[in-house]
Structure formats: C-alpha cells, structure tokens
C-alpha cells in the first residue's frame, strides 16, 4: 500500500502514517513525502507500531519511506538507532 502525503507539512505526515498503520493489515506501507522533518517523525511512528523503516531520496526534496511490518520481538530503540544512521547517510538528521 502507498500513502502519499506530499504537500503536507508537520505534523500531518506522522499523524496520517499513525492512522494508516492502525488500520493497516498488510506487510509493507510506502510513505511518499516532500517534508524533510517527516524523515524522523514517520519512522518513529512506524517503530512504535512495530514497523522497520528505510528511506530513499527520490528527487529534489522528495523521499520514499518504506515501512515493513516486523513480527515477533521488535526492538524499537534499536530500529530507531538504525534509522538515525540511515538518515545520516542521506544527509538528513
């Protein structure tokens, strides 16, 4: 499933993600955003709901965040630390 929140600014990308994840039954949710602060807030909402995240830059000021459901033991703290490293590679903190 794809959630397109381009054009939205804080706090809507994270709020929409949270709402979508509540109803979401699939495995992979792709979030499209052009709001840089969402690169830390969206993965955090994902982690709280048991989803790991990956971020990819798709254009000038546009990013694709892929949230993948994690079954079993999920360490949100560790997942967030990994996202933080990923953000640094992309030049976003």
């Amino acid at each position: 499933m794809e959630l397109d929140v381009r054009g939205e600014m804080c706090p809507y990308p994270a709020m929409k993600t949270k709402e979508a994840l509540k109803r979401f039954t699939g495995e992979t949710l792709v979030v499209l955003t052009d709001h840089a602060p969402a690169l830390s807030t969206v993965p955090w909402e994902g982690a709280k709901a048991g989803f790991a995240a990956d971020i990819e830059a798709t254009g000038a000021g546009e990013w694709k965040i892929t949230l993948v459901r994690q079954n079993g033991a999920f360490d949100a703290r560790r997942a967030m630390a990994q996202i933080a490293d990923r953000l640094r590679e992309l030049g976003q903190e």
Partner: peptide, 17 residues
Amino acid sequence: MVSVAATPATARPRLGG
C-alpha cells in the same frame, strides 16, 4: 533481530548547484 534494509543512498540531484 530486525534491521533496516541497507539500500545504498541514491545520489542527490545537483540541479541546484
């Protein structure tokens, strides 16, 4: 243990340079 997929960072466009 779960990990974040390690896709390589795509090169950022340098249009603005």
